[in-house]
């Protein structure tokens, strides 16, 4: 096959799989199922080779071949997890899990302490250190941030029942949260739209004459399938009614 043929085949596969997955927006159908299972298999295959070539080969096989037998310790701990599949020796996996939990806790606790406590407090009170040179607006801004921090934390305070004035403070915290969530929602939606534009751009490229109108033909075929399926479904229902 020539390079041009490969490019055309790629355009048909790309457009086809995109349209098959988008067809789920209408309803579940065999084309979606096919694309779904292909995606699942391709995804697994991809990660298998990533683990093989990015982890096992450079971090286990090659050091072992080079005489570094220390890598056997983490490798065996990792392999111990696989013993879960053999009930009689599944207890061995506890060593791997214990190591992971201990390692994870050791890594997380100091980092969280630093970011969730110290940085939070320091970041909130830091603007007040410029009080002598702050404008009224800057002071208001710093106060809003500090008040927002306290109110939001109050919302997540589980040791007291949220009633009366505590509930009011907590409600203010919810307003702060909702403002943040609204901004995050808009931000993420914009990012998703850029992904959608990317797909549309790809479909547009595949729709060119040089690609033998891949997008239009696949779209038309899918539409025809849904029409025929719908017609046959109605016919079947009518026959059942008789």
């Amino acid at each position: 096959m020539t390079e041009t043929t490969w490019i055309i085949a790629g355009a048909w596969i790309s457009a086809g799989l995109t349209i098959f997955l988008f067809s789920f927006l209408y309803k579940d159908n065999p084309f979606f199922k096919m694309a779904e299972h292909l995606y699942l298999g391709a995804g697994m295959g991809w990660w298998f080779q990533v683990y093989l070539y990015s982890i096992w080969k450079p971090k286990v096989f090659e050091p072992l071949l080079g005489g570094d037998f220390f890598v056997l310790i983490p490798a065996l701990l990792g392999l111990s997890l696989v013993t879960q599949f053999i009930p009689k020796i599944s207890w061995i996996s506890r060593y791997g899990f214990t190591f992971m939990m201990g390692y994870g806790a050791g890594m997380e606790i100091p980092a969280k302490l630093s970011t969730d406590f110290m940085s939070q407090i320091a970041g909130t009170i830091m603007p007040f250190s410029l009080m002598a040179s702050m404008s009224g607006f800057d002071i208001l801004n710093a106060l809003i941030v500090a008040a927002g921090t306290i109110c939001v934390l109050f919302y997540f305070f589980f040791s007291v029942e949220h009633k009366g004035s505590v509930k009011k403070i907590s409600n203010v915290g919810i307003y702060f949260l909702m403002i943040y969530f609204g901004a995050a929602f808009g931000n993420t939606v914009m990012a998703r739209f850029s992904l959608l534009y990317g797909r549309f751009d790809d479909l547009n490229t595949s729709a060119a004459a040089s690609n033998f109108y891949a997008t239009q033909i696949i779209l038309a075929a899918i539409a025809a399938y849904f029409l025929i399926h719908s017609f046959m479904g109605k016919k079947g229902q009518a026959e059942e009614a008789h």
Binding site: L21, F24, D28, F32, K33, A35, E36, Y39, L40, A42, G43, M44, W46, W47
Partner: peptide, 15 residues
């Protein structure tokens, strides 16, 4: 187990 790939996991669970 479904998949260790984010979007194929999502597609499969959606299905």
């Amino acid at each position: 187990f479904v998949s260790h790939d984010q979007f194929s996991y999502a597609a499969s669970v959606d299905g």
